[in-house]
Amino acid sequence: MSATVASPPSTPMPGMATVRAFGRTLLALVRQPAGAIGLFGVVFFLLLAFVGPSFVVLDVKTKLGKEYQLPSSEFLLGTDYQGRDVFSQIVHGGRDIIIVATTTALITTAIAVSLGALAGFLGGWFDTVVLAIADIILTIPQFPLLLVLATFVRLNNIVLLGVLLAALGWPALMRAIRSQVLSLRQRDYIEAARCLDLGTGHIVFQQILPSMTGYIAISFTLGMINAIFLQVGLIFLGLVPLSGNNWGVMLQLAWVRGAIFIKGGLGYILSPVVAISLLQLSLIMLARSLEEIFNPRLRRGN
């Protein structure tokens, strides 16, 4: 702790220890049934969305006479309104959803952590202004706001969609980070760092934030869950003209084409419903288990 003044990038925790901490978390995660299932689900969907497409060819051929077929050995999840294989669409349809969710969660966490840490540490007018903005964004119903914004911004780019979702998603996490920083900054080691005149940036990002890694990991997962909810909703209402194939577009097409009223359409409409629900469920179980690992007080309650 004493020699860190002159060497800015060297943190007390170099690479090896971080890897070990990560491994320990992973191990603790797998020991809980919920954590193991959640982790397995998330890994499964990541593989399905990013590795799956190189093994399964997307079926784009219209096959007359094979529309709305129930699942069979030829079509594992049935066929859509043009007789195309639903299974291949599910395999190819996860990538965009997960990319948007990850982009959103990354930007949300970055904004929330930096604003929350600074607001908590600096206090004063900066704190007041950031809190007021966060309060206003938290009060405005998110989904209607996104609808209105979607009429002005053409959301045909998945990164842009992620940025927009993140611009609305940061306040809750920011407030939580802020209150944690408020309590952490009273600790002795922060006092010591301040006496050493280490500078606000160094204290916030090198001394305070590392002790909140677990909390940030949980919030990242929750951010993904919210982003999936919002983006699929927007796509479903036809407000995100995303070209190509994803679960949201599948859901919208199946709904608009009236697949629910056709007996053979059950596989077509239920496939994206189940895929999205299972991904959400895996993420939530992962978040809950992370919470229990990083917050031991919870373990006693259950």
């Binding site: 999936i228 909810f229 909703g233 479903f236 419903v273 959400q280 939530i284 179980m285």
Partner: peptide, 17 residues
Amino acid sequence: SLLHSIPNYLIAMILII
């Protein structure tokens, strides 16, 4: 936890289906 994790519009669809 199960119901909480499924988006409400998907629950609505499942009810209709």
